[in-house]
Amino acid sequence: MEEKIRTPKNIFVDGAISPERIANSIAKHSTKHDIGGHSIFLGQVRADVKEAGEVRAIEYTAYEDMALQKAFEIREDIFSKYPLTCMHIYHSLGEVKVGEICLFVFTSSKHRKAAISACEELVEKIKKDLPIWGKELLENDASVWKENR
């Protein structure tokens, strides 16, 4: 059996990640009968209050080529550590309003613990290592660069 060669996939979505995209992604896995557990993380823009005003949206930018390569490396690392069936990463670029989804991470495995552990580690690596930046857009037309924690 020939080994499948993995290549970088485009993880970026223009604007918010829609509920339909999330639902469709989940629904597509119902035909995969070797999956016993999924773990899903949804990152949502929140209305933080800053000194200069309340956040109304975040505008995400990235060094796309570098981010896609790094996301690929992170995916490969997670696949090598956990017995996963599937892994999906979607991250917004552009403006995402408060209450909308900006990050969707979805892992699947034969057993729940692998899916949950992989999802958690994946989210931490994305937040720490991907060259993606968020500018918080405030109610009063001011803006501040967001720090990932």
Rank of each mutant, 00 (worst) to 15 (best):
L84M: 07
P83W: 02
E2S: 13
F72V: 03
K4D: 05
R149Q: 08
A62P: 09
E120A: 14
A118H: 07
S108M: 02
L93A: 03
F79I: 11
A71T: 06
K125F: 02
V13C: 13
K97L: 13
I5A: 02
A52V: 06
L138N: 01
K70T: 14
K125D: 09
E136S: 03
D65A: 11
I35P: 13
A142L: 05
A142E: 15
F106T: 01
P8R: 00
D48V: 14
N10G: 07
V13W: 04
T61Y: 02
F104H: 00
D77A: 10
A142V: 04
F41K: 00
L103A: 01
I74R: 01
R56Q: 15
R75L: 03
H33Y: 06
V105W: 00
N148H: 15
D77G: 05
K9C: 04
D34E: 15
I116G: 02
L84V: 12
S25K: 02
G99L: 12
H38G: 09
S92I: 11
A62K: 02
A67P: 06
K50T: 08
C86Y: 11
S39V: 13
A71N: 11
Y82E: 05
V105L: 00
C119R: 03
E147V: 15
D129K: 06
V55P: 10
V98A: 04
I17V: 11
F12N: 12
D65P: 06
I11P: 08
A114E: 15
A71K: 08
L122A: 02
R75A: 07
E64K: 11
I89K: 02
S108Q: 09
R56S: 09
E124G: 00
Q69K: 15
K113E: 14
A118Y: 01
G37H: 09
W133C: 10
I17Y: 08
G134S: 06
K50C: 13
I40P: 00
I101E: 02
H91D: 04
K9N: 05
